[in-house]
Amino acid sequence: MDPFEIEFIGENRIVSIIPNFSHDKIFLICGEFGPFRAGLPMNVPLWLAVMLKQKQKCRMVPPDWMDIEALETIKEEEKISRFFTKMPHEHYMIEAKLILGVAAEDIPRAAEIKTIIKDIWDIRMSKLRTSMDALMKSGGSYGRLDHLTMMEINSVKPLLPQAMDELHRIKMMTRQTSSSTLNSSTFSQSGSSQNK
């Protein structure tokens, strides 16, 4: 999948904004939002928030997790832990990128937050690489993807499944030849055509 498609999926996340205009409820495919009251915080999908922000129609409320201290602890945990730790949510990178991109002035200490999120991302990506290599070396037949976000899983996507596929195929092809002489009774249920 293209990263932009995942961004599109992630844009459906609900975020808080403070509009500076008043409007009735609006009805969208993904639900109804509003009514908009100037100065009162409300929840809208991320894509709508970005659109309104670009038109200077609202102020973004920083999401709970976009906080220097909280992110510091996540970063430390991520550094210490051998496994992937739980992220604030599935699309943290997309939310961070979009909000910090269009509404950096609404977020306190935006530059620092940007750096920390990038650090966390980099730590996780390098961890992903090393664990992929370790998975192949150890000869494991499956990998656990706990706490990996969609964007991160997508980044290994053609390579890792293809490699596992290929390993499996080599295993099956080489095993078939050795087993066809040893035990021919295994296939008897599925028909004897398998036996040479």
Partner: peptide, 10 residues
């Protein structure tokens, strides 16, 4: 074959 594939994945 399997061993080589695993090592060369890196």
């Amino acid at each position: 074959l399997l061993n080589t594939y695993r090592q060369r994945f890196k």
